[in-house]
Design a protein around this nucleic acid. Structure first.
Length: 208
DNA sequence: CGCCGGATGTCCT
DNA sequence: GGACATCCGGCGC
């Protein structure tokens, strides 16, 4: 039988904190509903960031940029990085706590043409590698700073909604986080089998 | 497939 | 001034 997490359960999950919530987000879907069209993706890779964590944007306290991390759980935190990329997170932990789960990769489940079009030239990549990075995922979903601090959960969450369609995918491996130079011992990257292998602490260089 | 370097804005030191 | 939760194209194997 098909079981689905309710919006209430999803909010409760986010409230538990980023480390607890992150692995449970594998298999959840993000529905993007914008004027140019509708699309949906299934989450295959996430990372947890907490407040007393030098790799976290919340480590140095509240700023206009990081405020959504400290807001109520279950809201989007979208930030701009490397001068050209957006990345999408879901705020976690109770209000006042600076935690979030970074959505690092996903596979398409609806609105393929739109997802591919938004990725531009790279839209010709196979499904598996169309959104195999946080900025690629954000681009495919059409995310920008306009989305930051908006609620992520609920029937009226728009233009971006985190929800459960009942489709589940298994946690395949747990590794250190990608692209950070501190706190590399913390294994807070959670991957489904579909997620890309990368050179990070804890990742096995060979598959199988 | 892997390595390397450039692009390019914002925030912190 | 440097770091940064990155991506892409070019080149070599």
């Amino acid at each position: 039988m098909l079981t689905r997490l309710t919006d209430r359960a999803l909010r409760s999950l986010c409230a538990q904190g980023a480390v607890a919530a992150a692995p449970e987000m594998l298999g959840l879907i993000v529905v993007s509903n914008r004027p140019e069209g509708r699309c949906a993706v299934r989450i295959t890779e996430v990372e947890a960031y907490v407040e007393h964590d030098p790799a976290s944007h919340s480590f140095r306290g509240v700023t206009p940029r990081t405020a959504p991390m400290f807001g109520p759980p279950g809201h989007w935190y979208v930030y701009f990085t490397y001068g050209m990329h957006w990345c999408v997170n879901v705020s976690c932990g109770p209000r006042g706590t600076g935690e979030a789960v970074l959505l690092r990769a996903a596979v398409p489940i609806a609105g393929m043409e739109l997802l591919r079009a938004r990725r531009g030239k790279a839209g010709r990549a196979p499904d598996r590698s169309l959104m195999d990075g946080p900025a690629k995922l954000a681009q495919a979903l059409g995310c920008t700073g306009d989305d930051t601090a908006l609620p992520a959960i609920g029937a009226h969450a728009r233009p971006l909604r985190l929800t459960d369609d009942g489709g589940r995918i298994a946690l395949d491996r747990v590794t250190g986080r990608v692209g950070i130079s501190v706190a590399q011992d913390l294994r807070w990257r959670f991957c489904a089998a579909e997620a890309p292998v990368r050179k990070v602490p804890g990742e096995r260089p060979l598959s199988g």
